[in-house]
Design a protein around this nucleic acid. Structure first.
Lengths: 204, 204
DNA sequence: AAGTGCATGTAAGATGTTACATGATTAT
DNA sequence: ATAATCATGTAACATCTTACATGCACTT
């Protein structure tokens, strides 16, 4: 559902080939949506079938056809409809939190390792998001530049602030999660042998 | 992947029928995982096939067969393996944040409505999670009671604190999100006409 | 007699992941 | 030459959502 609008939103800034979109969405820890290449290409075809995007064949080299997709007026309309529609908070489905809920079933030291790994991972993400946020505020990302060039200069600050604000949340959220993990480590250490009843392996 | 371990984790506290598990996981805004009934029953069969859970047929009334599932030693072992394994932060895929990223394409008033709806929704969730958290700290949920009855009383506080801590994060996270949405409303209001270029409908 | 809750299932479709396959162009 | 990057696709599979179907037990 949402990937389609993510694509439309990006194409609204500028036209792109499937490959460029793929690079945007693949392994994009620093972006708000991710999708593998195998989802992008079929979806572009589908959107073209619905008239929301338009592909233009470009000859490159001998017979290499490289398709440049751009958003249509219908596509922009569909995107705006979606942007206007309120949605409920998506149901939480967080494997790491689920894991934490049952940490009393393993040794505190083992749970501690898992949490330490989470914290490490979060630090990396935070750094990436912070960097991206800074670039947005400086209006220094390729896509934002393209977008702003179509807009009234009086709005530039507001638009950049709005986009950066999304990343502010990602950063805040990851920071709060890291603090949560630290606190969880403290609770685990607080005392207590683990798994007294029905142990997985003979007590040692 | 994770649903299977969520089921095992619940069954570790006490045996249950598919129906009871369904009620646990369906529309469970107050829990950390959710799944519709159509996922539960087939998965239970699969887990039984793998020997991770064991179903016991119970006669009820005339010929009504009601199956009570319990976790096996293999199931407990598989669950512990999973609990010990570090995982990377799941890729963020948040439709609401995606929406916010393109709010510059619609009227500020329209975006404001969407954000107001989000905040309302978050308040409801926060209230539910807070209630659940309180009950966990008071060791007053049916499932936690069953679980604690199998464990050393000296660990009870630590276990309850650990579980409650998971909900603390959900609450903190939702609060931070609500504050973020309020801030976003302020940015939207900060000035600026919207969509100057390529308007969806004639400017008014 | 009809409705609600208990209880278990199937089917169709959307979405997402992992892996494989292919060929052209550009850089070393 | 060969490796990396550009570029586009398919296949198989797991997961998740929505909807429908069925029948018993208990209440009103």
């Amino acid at each position: 559902m949402s990937l389609q609008y993510a694509i439309l939103g990006v194409l609204d800034a500028r036209s792109m080939s499937g490959y460029e979109l793929t690079r945007m969405f693949e392994s994009s820890a620093r972006w708000v949506w991710s999708a593998p290449q195998s989802q992008i290409y079929p979806l572009l075809r589908k959107l073209e079938g619905e008239g929301l995007v338009q592909g233009e064949d470009q000859v490159r080299g001998e017979k290499m056809r490289r398709v440049q997709y751009s958003i249509t007026e219908d596509g922009r309309h569909a995107l705006r409809e979606w942007l206007r529609s309120p949605m409920d908070t998506p149901t939480i489905r967080d494997p790491q939190l689920l894991q934490a809920l049952f940490f009393d079933m393993i040794e505190p030291a083992e749970a501690d390792d898992v949490l330490a790994h989470q914290i490490e991972d979060l630090r990396t993400l935070i750094a990436q998001w912070e960097a991206h946020r800074e670039r947005l505020l400086a209006k220094d990302t390729p896509l934002l530049k393209e977008r702003l060039s179509q807009r009234d200069p009086a709005d530039h600050d507001r638009i950049a602030a709005l986009k950066a604000h999304v990343f502010t949340h990602l950063i805040e959220s990851a920071r709060s999660r890291a603090e949560w993990a630290e606190q969880a480590r403290r609770i685990l250490a607080s005392s207590g042998s683990p798994v007294t009843a029905h142990a997985d392996r003979p007590a040692h």
